[in-house]
Design a protein around this nucleic acid. Sequence first.
DNA 1: TAAGATTTGTTCGTATGTATC
DNA 2: GGATACATACGAACAAATCTT
Lengths: 253, 253
Amino acid sequence: MDGSDTSPNKLKRSRPVKVADQIKQWVVERDLKDGDKLPNEGEMIKLFGVSKGTVREALRILEAQGLIITKTGPGGGSIVGEVSAERASSLLANYFYFQDLSLTDIYQMRKALEPELVASLAGNLTDEQLSELEALAEMHPKPAETAEQEKEHHISSLKFHARLSEFAGNKLLGFVIGFMSRILTDLTVYRRLYDKPNFELWKKGREHQIQLVKALRAGEATIAQNIMKSHMQIAEELMQTQEASLTKQFMGD
Amino acid sequence: MDGSDTSPNKLKRSRPVKVADQIKQWVVERDLKDGDKLPNEGEMIKLFGVSKGTVREALRILEAQGLIITKTGPGGGSIVGEVSAERASSLLANYFYFQDLSLTDIYQMRKALEPELVASLAGNLTDEQLSELEALAEMHPKPAETAEQEKEHHISSLKFHARLSEFAGNKLLGFVIGFMSRILTDLTVYRRLYDKPNFELWKKGREHQIQLVKALRAGEATIAQNIMKSHMQIAEELMQTQEASLTKQFMGD
DNA sequence: TAAGATTTGTTCGTATGTATC
DNA sequence: GGATACATACGAACAAATCTT
């Protein structure tokens, strides 16, 4: 957090934005952590010499970014809050709302990253984590018969990948993969992608997931990596048989 | 943008947040685009049945997310604004401020993605873009002698990668690579990474960039990819000779 | 359960700043 | 420069939530 004007922008910053920056600075100077308390409204009014309304607008700015949490009542007030992956994901989704991503774009990334992820995860998961993945993989033992079931299957499958990403030691890698799962899930929910059940693809996908968990448990990094590569290939083919443009299907919160 | 309560959270949402959601909904229902005008404060007060202060807090929330831009004066008011890559990057950096990324984490990603990027860029760049990259690559013909010069060289090098990422047809891939360049640049600026000039690494890095541009111009995807792989290897080695933990060095705006 | 204290939440009236014509 | 239309900011009052006793 710098707080100072890093860019040569001479953009006029409104007072609430300035105050928001001042609060940020106040927090960083004191190296405050997750649950630490900020001054209350009254103190901020005196501290920054602005009115209550201005302070509150500043607090809403920080809250929107996920940096603080505000509660009412005695002992209430604002505290520092770690930005959650969920919130970061939402904010980022707002950016891609305008960007016109294609399925090809997303799968170019998935093909590069998901095999990398499982390779680094092999042999490093707890029994509990492995069991959970197993349960997700075996959730749908029967092929879909209706479009609705097909949709459920695919959301489950994405859930498998999302959960996998949360186990990543590499938080950046984990976040990006989780973000892609989210986008694809939103897509599946809001559009009626996956119209027609596809027996062959369901079967392959399920086998892949089960074999993958086995490889992860055995610590077979290369095998896990190869399974995921094949899996991504299959998944992309499935998606590509459906629509291509997925603009404007998210921007959630 | 959904606006509705997707999650099973029974989190109490303050009125400004609700109004912000209502405004979002209002925008999406009408499919408003980049420069389109929103109702002014007075109209929103009537529209949502809340006071001026509440409307203003809601507007600050949307502004913080980069979704609207507000101007004063006649013809002023709020308009829809595309979230910029810059802003999305800042918001995301807030998340990783708390996450404890290591250089190894970042380079695991870079090694997976940057070769992929140049492969897809080969033969698809304009003369102008290629010239610009060339200029960046040839910016420092002489090895660094001081720590300050070494720092400049590395920022330039990261600029090269950042620019490259902006040329990506795949906006997701481009964004992630640009984001990593940003993090590494912030690191270089705020910490004194790169203390001691390293002649061998400078030379290799420079050659790589120049060869890379040549391969991109020739449309040699595989060659470009291999050059980038080597380059990432070198770059990681260089960084690893320096500090490892890069927590809490960003959170900028 | 109830009352009181604390802190945020919301409203209103008014005044000021700023950009356009 | 003056009129207009808009956001910006302030201050005082009251409402609502929540913790403590």
